[in-house]
């Protein structure tokens, strides 16, 4: 009897591993192995044909931290994240509330809001390149023609941020829209009868019920603010004077423009660590305050 139970249990375990294995193989090949390789590489010097790579410990990290460009890039990215994430979430929420209300041409409004999310970032960036062109684009038609948005250090980072917000908000709106539609209309009516106006209802009922979605969107927005930097290649290439350079773009430069693979690897490890930390903090702290049905 116990033998059969044991066998049955083993069979269940085997099925579990079999179901898990495709994901495990893919993740190991394309995520875990490269991560470990990167970590390993970040501890060695760059090898040449004559000098094989030598173990240098944390030298690559020390080099990075000593580089003023590192701090510039980190500062840029913090500002970029600090603006783009809350702005795109707020905009997404606003658009979702608007597109969920009983308005004429609702389907059209939804599609219009979602269009930027469907465009490839490269295409969106080219579009905005046109918008930003001094003396030529639509911004020029608004009387801002003399400003070289992308060409001066004071505005370049902001210009790049605006593109990201415009691109992301429509995508996040879809999640909010889906979440809003799961809120039963009874709740609104109950709140109405209890004397809650539209604003009170939104603040006391809708926003708390959207908390899980907000958490999900927040994690994604934070990751994207590090990950999604395609527009830099089109708009500024990180310039002028590193004014709009973000971490990932710099990593790409280190690896493929300066061929400094070990420092690029060190930078990658740092970013991974920070992102992991952010995810852990988010899921533990905000999870406690989010209501899941």
């Amino acid at each position: 009897m116990t033998h059969m139970v044991k066998q049955e249990r083993r069979r269940a375990a085997l099925y579990g591993w079999m179901l898990l294995s495709p994901a495990l193989v893919l993740f190991t090949t394309f995520v875990f192995a490269p991560t470990v390789a990167t970590l390993w590489q970040s501890l060695f010097s760059a090898g040449t044909r004559r000098r094989p790579p030598a173990f240098v410990g944390l030298d690559n990290y020390a080099d990075l931290i000593a580089d003023p460009v590192f701090w510039r890039v980190v500062g840029n990215n913090l500002l970029y994240t600090g603006i783009a994430v809350p702005a795109s979430i707020a905009l997404a929420l606003g658009m979702a509330l608007w597109a969920n209300a009983r308005i004429p041409a609702r389907a059209f409004v939804r599609v219009a809001y979602f269009t930027p999310a469907m465009l490839p970032m490269i295409a969106a960036a080219n579009l905005w390149l046109f918008f930003y062109t001094p003396g030529f684009g639509p911004l020029a038609a608004l009387g801002l023609g003399s400003v070289n948005w992308l060409g001066q250090p004071e505005t370049a980072l902001w210009a790049v941020t605006v593109v990201a917000v415009w691109k992301e908000a429509g995508f996040f709106m879809v999640f909010y829209l889906a979440a809003l539609q799961t809120i039963p209309p009874d709740l609104r009516e109950a709140a109405q009868i209890e004397g809650a106006g539209r604003w009170t209802y939104t603040r006391r009922v809708v926003l708390p019920l959207l908390m899980p979605t907000t958490l999900f969107v927040l994690v994604n927005a934070l990751i994207n603010s590090v990950r999604l930097i395609d527009q830099l290649f089109i708009l500024t290439k990180g310039g002028p004077d590193n004014a709009s350079k973000l971490i990932l773009y710099w990593m790409w430069e280190l690896a493929f423009s300066y061929f400094d693979a070990p420092r690029a690897a060190a930078m990658t490890v740092l970013v991974l660590m920070v992102l992991c930390l952010v995810a852990v903090v988010q899921f533990t702290l905000i999870d406690r305050r989010a209501h899941y049905r």
Partner: peptide, 12 residues
């Protein structure tokens, strides 16, 4: 006041 069929309690 009103009692709804679904009760319409605020889940959070």
């Amino acid at each position: 006041s009103m009692v709804f069929q679904s009760y319409a309690l605020f889940p959070h």
